[in-house]
Each structure stands twice: as structure tokens, then as C-alpha cells.
Simulated scan of single mutants.
Amino acid sequence: MKALFAVDHIFGRSADGAVFTIGGKFPYPAWQSYLDVFEQLTVVSRAIPLPDPAGQRRSDGPRVDFQLLPARRGLDRLRGMRDARRAVFAAVKQADVVIARLPSETALIACAAARFHGKPYLVEVVACPWDALWNHGSKIARLYAPLFTRRNRRVIRDAPVARYVTRAFLQQRYPTRGLEYVASNVELPPVTATRIFDGFSDIIRFGTIGALHTRLKGIDIAMRALHQLKRERPSLRWRYEVVGEGDPATLLQLRDALGLQDEVRFIGTLPPGDAIARWLGDVDIYLQPSFQEGLPRAVIEALNQGRIVIGSTAGGTPELLRAERLHRPGDVEALLSIIAAVIDTPPRALASEARDNLRMGRSFSRDDILAARRSSLRALADLVPAHRP
């Protein structure tokens, strides 16, 4: 049985045709749960040329092939929508089932194609489409947000099978009439906590993982809060490092305008697994002041390393963190207040919190997550005979 997976991730294609995941989100092992149920997987997404794939992980491999569309953005993407739609409909026709990761324009087209061709489909609901576009940063995205949200809500409502990454948040906003499953899209590689937080050193180290090409991760909010921290506590020594793909030019301009050249560094991407774990092991306070989330992988990774974690109330983040470590998205003053409270908390209490965080991070058992994913995929496979004449 052949499955088609539709997503809006941007892959890289090298000169020899090999496909790489940019940012590490879809390395070849990520397809294993799909290959446990289906004989072949075709991934439909977008791609850019990748002249130098050094440091990137292969995404293609045995039983996984790709149909990649140009990685257009904004109005240019709208102009190419007819060609994209034609390509996706043709690919869906060749598949037995469709798996659509939402929110995603490519995945919405794939669901429409599945209905047209009479193919069963499953939606993976991994984030809130309204939050994603409304907080994107562009006027065009805000104008499109209501329509995009309605389209996603309708597709999720009518999906034969829906799998959510949250326990409650996304289900409440985007309910389904179909079969419903819960399984995180976070599958952490087996790594050991390098050093559970046990107190601050001479320099407090803050960290964030997030893409730099939009403001969805709230990195600007973190810098503004830390700027105020510097003004209020001038003798306090600290550093803030950001890991993530994308051009940091806009954020560098803000950093320089705030006078944080000595404290803030953008270090690019790191391979998932041990490299991220080692970096997190040197972070004292992990910040995730996002405007939009599903169930944030980076927060779970930080918890799994026994870090102190502060995040916004976006998406499913409140399902992971204690209430006193949460702030409203975009609220610089609230974030500053929580950071100050953490710094002033006795070391013994923070060490206890770090141990609690470690337990929360390790509750995302890889075996349990894969079992839940396979259950939803088998439910999808069981629908195939009913969709054939």
C-alpha cells in the first residue's frame, strides 16, 4: 500500500538529486512509523537547491521518494498555485492514502485531491493556523489568516482520521468528526541529560531554539525583556544564544539597537540529538516566548535536559510548564518578571524544579509515541477498501 505525505517543510536538493532536511525536522528515520504500516511513502513538499549539503541530514532513502515543488513565498507562491495544485492532484491519484500535516497549503491541496479521487486521508494537526499567520509579521499573512483558518478547520472537521499533537488545545479549536488520536510529533533521539540544572554560575546563560525568518518564536520579545533586565540589574552577567535556521539580519539590527552586542549571539543550526543536548546542557534558563506553537519540540528537549524553562501560553505549551513559568505571547514585562523571579529563587527550589522538568521531558516515551502514531495510521489503512469502488 502506498501513502502520500504532504507538508510545507522546505527540503534541500543537492546537485546529484539527493534530498536533505533543512533544520533537521525530517531526517530519514522520521519516516519509520509510516513505513511500519505502508510499503511506500511519497513526500510532497517544497525544496530549494542545496549546493553544499555539509551538516544536513539525508531525508530520502529506501521506500521513500519525493515530489518537490519550488519553494515560493508570498504572492509569488499564489501565482504558482495552479501548477502546484496540478502536481499534487496527480501525485495523490497514484497513492492509496493521504497523510496531511496541517497547517499547510500543500497539505490542504492534498486533502482536496484525496476527496476528489476518493482516497482516505489522515490529518496531523501540529499547530494553530490562526496563530501561525496572525503572528507571522506580514500584512498579507494577517489578511489571509481568517480564510486560512476556516479552510483548515473545515478540513480537520471532515477528516476521516485526525491525529493531534496536543492533549486538549488544538482539539478544542479544531475539532473533528472523524476518528481522533493523540500523539506528539516530537520524537527525541536517545540522549542523556548532560547536566541537570543545579545553580547559576558567574554568567547566567539563556537560550532559545527557533527559526529566524519569522517572529513566531518571539526572539525579539526575549531580547527586549533581557534589555530591560540589563537596565534594571546592570551588574548581572548573562548571555543569550539562539539556535535556528534563517537570516538573522532583522534580529541583529534589533540586538544592536538595544545595545546587546556583547550578550546576544546567533549560532545557526545544530544537528539534532547529541549536539542540541550538549548545547542545552550549558543553558541555565531556556526561553520559548512564542506567538504560535503546537506542542513545542524545543521545550520538550529543554525539559529532557533538566533545564529551567519559561514559555508563553501559545498552543500546547501550558500542557508542559507550570503556571508560574508562563506569560502571554508578546508580553515583555511579564517575561521579564518571570526571569527575575527565577533568578531570585533559592537554588534548592530551582534544582527541584529542574528534576520535575526532567521527569516531564522523559514522559514523552518514544515507544509510546510511535505506538500511538501506528494506531492512527492503521486506522487510515483500514479505510482503503471502503474508498474503492
Rank of each mutant, 00 (worst) to 15 (best):
M1K: 15
A6H: 01
V7I: 15
D8R: 06
G12I: 04
R13G: 00
D16N: 09
F20G: 02
K25C: 09
P29I: 10
D36Q: 12
E39S: 13
Q40R: 12
P51I: 05
R57I: 04
G61R: 06
G61L: 03
D65C: 05
R72S: 09
L78R: 13
F89E: 11
F89Y: 11
A90H: 11
A95H: 13
A100M: 07
I109P: 02
R115F: 10
H117N: 14
G118Q: 09
K119W: 07
K119E: 03
P120V: 14
V123E: 06
V125K: 05
A127H: 02
P129I: 09
L133P: 07
K139G: 11
L143M: 11
R154W: 13
I156G: 07
R157T: 04
D158Q: 14
D158I: 04
A159W: 08
A159H: 12
V161T: 07
V161C: 06
R167N: 13
P175Q: 12
A183R: 09
V186A: 14
I196K: 02
D198S: 13
D198F: 04
D202F: 06
G210R: 03
K217P: 02
I219S: 00
D220F: 07
R224A: 01
L229R: 01
S235D: 10
E245F: 10
Q253M: 12
L254P: 04
L254H: 01
L254C: 08
G259I: 09
L260C: 03
L260A: 00
G273R: 13
L280R: 06
Q292M: 08
E293S: 01
P296W: 13
I300R: 02
I308V: 02
I310C: 00
I310R: 00
G311Y: 05
T317V: 08
E319V: 00
L320D: 04
R322D: 01
A323V: 10
R325N: 03
H327S: 04
R328M: 09
E333L: 13
L336K: 06
S337W: 01
S337E: 10
I339S: 01
T345V: 03
A351T: 10
A351H: 04
M360K: 14
R362S: 06
S365Y: 03
S365N: 13
I369G: 00
A371C: 11
R378F: 13
R378C: 08
V384Y: 14
A386F: 15
